[in-house]
Design a protein around this nucleic acid. Structure first.
Length: 105
DNA sequence: ACACTGACAAGTA
DNA sequence: CTACTTGCCAGTG
């Protein structure tokens, strides 16, 4: 177990409500070039934890990981955060995009 | 050590 | 926007 997952978790947990981000944004924040796959892989293992993985979508704004959540939990939760949906399982990524690199804490 | 899979991204057509 | 190809890294058998 490398610290890789830890980085992903910390970043995802910092995503403000009503905002979404992409795997690529997280990957870049971690300094990876194409670790987007690893990000999704890591989130899969924490889909049932306190990690708000539902705020992480792919570059197309699609809720790719909805299948790993019970029922439509992912979609409904985002809607509760007032996230704009342009489709039942696709959010307006450009309207709610949150980039961790701009936070830089 | 080898092969396959995976919540993907970026580029090109 | 869609469809196809390449790259990339970790986990599992």
């Amino acid at each position: 177990m490398d610290d890789y997952y830890e980085r992903v978790y910390e970043v995802v947990k910092q995503i403000p409500a009503g905002c979404v981000t992409t795997y690529g944004a997280i990957a870049q924040y971690l300094g990876i070039k194409s670790g987007a796959r690893m990000v999704g892989y890591a989130l899969n293992k924490v889909a049932e934890t306190e990690i708000p993985a539902h705020r992480v979508v792919n570059r197309n704004g699609e809720l790719t990981g909805k299948a790993y959540f019970p029922g439509d939990t992912m979609r409904e939760r985002l809607q509760q955060e007032q996230v704009t949906f342009i489709d039942d399982f696709q959010v307006d990524i450009e309207a709610h995009l949150w980039n961790p690199n701009e936070e830089l804490n």
